[in-house]
């Protein structure tokens, strides 16, 4: 078995709140093998999104260690973390997080330009074509529907061909039908790219598409199960 792409060792996160120490996460141990599709499930406030942030080095754990492709993230400074993300990690957010002053195509080409890829502009166009938005490339996010915005976000996440894709409630802001379509697209893109996907959701139907499900409650992993 090859080395895991992601590993959490005893990860904890505490935040000061009203003079007390609030525990968000506690003693998280999790290993994600390369190419896996893992869903993290749990009710609101269980610490799912925080865990996702720690996995990407967006946030720093209060205790324990997160290893991405064998490198401990806490050893890296902000610039090094950013460089690591740009090459290895893609993101999909619940509220899309497109840059409002950039067109759809510019949003997609941004990570490509960042890594200095040749023909970033053309590749961004191709990527939008693949998510079915070939005719909307010059539109700004405010001119697109929620489903369309999430498709732009998917194109942006997959464009630089990341090894690890992190998705935070990717269907949370969409109606049931649009959400299903977006999820289909996400799963399809992942399969063709062979990327690892860690997806956070509170929706059992969404989680059902994953190979493996990690159940989080009050900041702790309470249960794990795998698709038969």
């Amino acid at each position: 078995m090859s080395a895991p792409i992601l590993e959490c060792r005893g990860v904890g996160k505490h935040l000061p709140s009203g003079g007390r120490d609030l525990t968000i996460l506690e003693g998280i141990d999790l290993v994600v093998p390369r190419g896996d599709f893992v869903a993290i499930l749990g009710p609101s406030g269980s610490g799912k999104s925080t865990l996702l942030g720690l996995m990407a080095g967006l946030d720093r754990p209060s205790s324990g260690s997160v290893l991405l492709e064998g490198r401990a993230l806490e050893d890296l400074n902000e610039d090094a973390l950013a460089r690591m993300r740009r090459r290895r990690v893609g993101f999909v957010f619940q509220d899309f997080q497109l840059l409002g002053n950039l067109t759809a195509r510019e949003n997609v080409s941004l990570p490509l330009e960042l890594t200095g890829v040749d023909q970033a502009w053309e590749r961004a166009g191709d990527m939008l074509e693949r998510v079915g938005l070939g005719a909307r490339t010059h539109h700004y996010p405010s001119q697109l529907s929620g489903g369309e915005q999430q498709r732009v976000a998917l194109a942006r996440a997959f464009a630089p061909e990341p090894a690890l894709l992190l998705a935070d409630e990717p269907t949370g802001n969409l109606d049931a039908k649009t959400g299903r379509a977006a999820l289909d697209l996400l799963v399809g893109l992942r399969e063709s790219a062979g990327a690892t996907l860690v997806l956070v959701t509170h929706d059992d139907q969404v989680a059902a598409r994953a190979q493996r499900r990690v159940h989080l409650e009050a900041g702790r992993i309470v249960r794990e199960d795998a698709r038969a």
Binding site: E78, A82, M84, R86, V89, L98, L99, P111, L114
Partner: peptide, 12 residues
């Protein structure tokens, strides 16, 4: 927007 850019890998 800066947070998004940071998440996408743009350094501070």
């Amino acid at each position: 927007a800066m947070a998004v850019m940071r998440a996408l890998g743009v350094t501070p």
